[in-house]
Amino acid sequence: MSALKQEIKELLVRDLRLQTTPDAIGDNDPLFGEGLGLDSLDAVELVVQVNKHFGVQIKDMTEGQKAFTSVQTLADYIEKRRS
């Protein structure tokens, strides 16, 4: 799980061009608003990148809202969907 969280953090920094480092992102930092400050355009990129890198498709906004709370919830979601 920690390897997956690290992968997510690297993806966030690399593909969403965040001005931070993977190590500076906490597992429970909120992705949107305060926290990492992602916005709706970043969210679009994130949905596509999660599908591309982890083969996991987020199907609707209810799922998306839960999964995109933090790196931890996203990792949980990916893990669950993979299994």
Partner: peptide
């Protein structure tokens, strides 16, 4: 009007 303005559903549709 929902979370992310329906973008998740739109992405899935386009894909």
């Amino acid at each position: 009007s929902g979370f992310m303005g329906g973008m998740i559903e739109a992405i899935n549709a386009l894909e």
